[in-house]
Computed example of a mutant assay.
Amino acid sequence: MSADSVAAVKREILVRHLETWAPQALHRGRRAAYVHGYADDVPDLAEAALRVFTEQSDLVRGRELTMLAIGSEVGDVAARLGKLPPAPGLTVLTIGGGTQERIGVALKAAGALRVPMLGFLDASSASGPPSPATLAALATGKPAEILVVLPSGSSVPDFREALNTAGFPLVAAVELAVSDDPAEIVVYATTLGKSLESFKDVLWAVDEFAGVRYRDPGDPERHLIDISLEPHPGPLRRELLAHLGQAGSATVAELRTFALTETVYRASDATRVVHALLDAGSVTRRPEQGRLGGDVVISL
Rank of each mutant, 00 (worst) to 15 (best):
S2A: 14
S5N: 13
K10M: 10
R11K: 12
V15L: 04
R16P: 03
E19W: 04
P23S: 06
A25W: 01
L26E: 02
R28E: 12
R30Y: 09
R30W: 10
R31L: 01
A32T: 02
Y34C: 09
Y34N: 05
V35S: 02
H36P: 00
G37D: 07
Y38W: 10
Y38P: 05
V42E: 12
L45V: 06
A46E: 05
A46N: 04
A49C: 11
L50A: 11
L50K: 11
R51E: 14
E55W: 10
S57F: 09
D58I: 07
D58R: 15
L59A: 10
V60L: 12
L65K: 05
A69T: 08
G71M: 04
V74C: 03
V74S: 02
G75D: 14
A78T: 07
L81P: 03
K83A: 14
L84C: 03
A87P: 01
L90P: 04
L90V: 00
T91Y: 09
T91Q: 12
L93P: 01
G97H: 01
G98H: 07
Q100P: 00
A109Y: 03
R114L: 11
V115L: 06
L118E: 05
G119W: 01
L121N: 04
D122L: 02
A123V: 00
G128L: 09
S131Q: 08
S131D: 09
P132N: 07
T134C: 11
L138T: 05
A139E: 06
T140R: 15
G141D: 08
P143T: 00
A144K: 06
V148L: 05
V149P: 10
L150E: 00
P151C: 02
S152P: 12
S154G: 06
P157E: 05
D158R: 14
A162M: 12
A162L: 12
A162S: 14
L163Y: 03
L170E: 07
V174A: 12
V174H: 03
L176S: 10
S179P: 04
I185N: 06
S195T: 05
E197Q: 13
E197L: 12
V202W: 09
L203V: 01
W204Q: 03
V206N: 07
E208M: 13
E208R: 15
F209T: 15
V212R: 13
V212F: 10
V212D: 10
Y214D: 04
R215W: 01
D216Y: 04
D216I: 08
D219K: 04
D219E: 03
D219I: 06
P220G: 11
E221M: 14
R222M: 10
L224A: 14
D226H: 13
S228V: 04
L229E: 15
P233V: 08
P235C: 06
L236N: 01
R237F: 00
R238E: 13
L241P: 09
L241I: 09
H243P: 07
Q246M: 14
S249G: 11
S249N: 14
A250D: 03
A250V: 09
A253K: 10
L260Y: 06
L260F: 01
E262Y: 11
R266Y: 02
A267F: 04
A267Q: 09
A270G: 01
A270C: 02
T271P: 02
T271V: 12
R272V: 00
H275D: 14
L277H: 00
L278M: 09
D279Y: 14
A280Y: 02
T284I: 14
G294T: 07
V297P: 06
